[in-house]
Nucleic acid binder design. Structure first.
Lengths: 191, 191
DNA sequence: TTTCTTAATTGACATAGGTCATTTTTATTG
DNA sequence: CAATAAAAATGACCTATGTCAATTAAGAAA
């Protein structure tokens, strides 16, 4: 049951059995069906989630009602609202399942206890955050220097086969273009 | 001499005198004059820097020779190439002084020793990275939902008085627009 | 101060992508 | 399977911003 998260942890830090035990003791398994919100704006963020199976999207809604996807999460990704979670403020993010999904959840208090019990998890989360930061920076850079077609192709290879798992308008939102515009780009790529 | 960095650390973690000592022992003061590169692409990244006084910019050069600013660093900011530094690969970033600057530098090995000696610094860097991640996400979102004028105004209030410290074309690069376009926006704001 | 260099502004023009309205295709559900 | 809803594609039109070239302004150096 815990294989995927254990190997994820061991990918980043040297973890003893006791370390692993300390983590798994604090995880809860959650199953959610398709099109369900794990998080909605205004909510007090109780958990961060690790995806065992499934596909989710995290997005904001702007003042004009437009969605802006910030992250897709598939198997072995952590997903949640870091800002709201660590800074104890209400979220302004939607996190929604695109497929029915199986997740582990951990609470803020349990995560803090874990940091006390086993500082290797400070390191683990520091490394994850550093990687997320770097990936995000790449995304900014790509947005600044590449046209949408290039970024769409990049996206497809970064999240393999995701075109089949995620509706098109989510991808358009992620790339920061209208669904119509992405549609035109796809046509050009085919023809 | 160390006041600014000490209070920066204490802002994030509970640090004893011994903790502080462990850090300051590893810092070197560096003075660099205006228009100097601290880092250039291809280089093996030896240091991360903390700005005591001055102003710097970190940017990439894309395949078309266009600059893309990823960060301005002023007093009390850390600056460096996280990706290259932590992952031991050559940098593809320029870091350049815009004003003559005074910095602290720390090496990779010293930082790792510090993490061993005092795990609170794992925490400190985790928190810094989390904040940087969040700030960067806000930047992505702002780019996706606001027009350039709005983002320019946001930028001016996020980095107060920076218009006076930083040439215009750097700001245009940061916002992801041409210098001409920013110039037109500034004209409209005045008139 | 004068000279030289760098930065900023401006105009003309081209184009990617936005918006809105409509149609076609694909999913979902009773 | 039929009926309905949701998503994708398409066309017409508009606007913001890019590019290139020229001019003006500001800053640095001698």
């Amino acid at each position: 049951m815990y294989e995927s998260i254990i190997s994820h942890v061991k990918n980043y830090v040297e973890a003893s059995n006791a370390h692993i035990q300390a983590l798994t003791d604090k995880l809860n398994e959650v199953c959610v069906s398709k099109h369900t919100y794990l998080l909605q704006p205004g909510t007090h963020v109780m958990h961060e989630y690790f995806v065992i199976k499934g596909c989710l999207i995290a997005y904001y809604l702007d003042s004009k009602g437009h969605k802006h996807a910030v992250q897709f999460a598939i198997e072995n990704w952590w997903v949640g609202d870091f800002d709201a979670f660590f800074n104890h403020k209400p979220s302004n993010l939607f996190i929604e399942t695109i497929e029915s999904s199986k997740l582990f959840s951990i609470t803020y208090d349990d995560l803090n206890t874990l940091f006390q019990e086993a500082p290797i998890y400070e390191r683990y989360f520091r490394l994850l955050t550093t990687n997320a930061f770097i990936a995000q920076r790449k995304r900014i850079l790509s947005a600044l220097q590449n046209d949408t077609k290039t970024r769409y192709l990049e996206f497809c290879s970064a999240y393999p086969n995701i075109e089949d798992r995620v509706p098109n308008y989510h991808i358009a939102n992620y790339l920061g273009v209208s669904a119509e515009s992405l549609s035109r780009i796809r046509r050009k790529l085919k023809g």
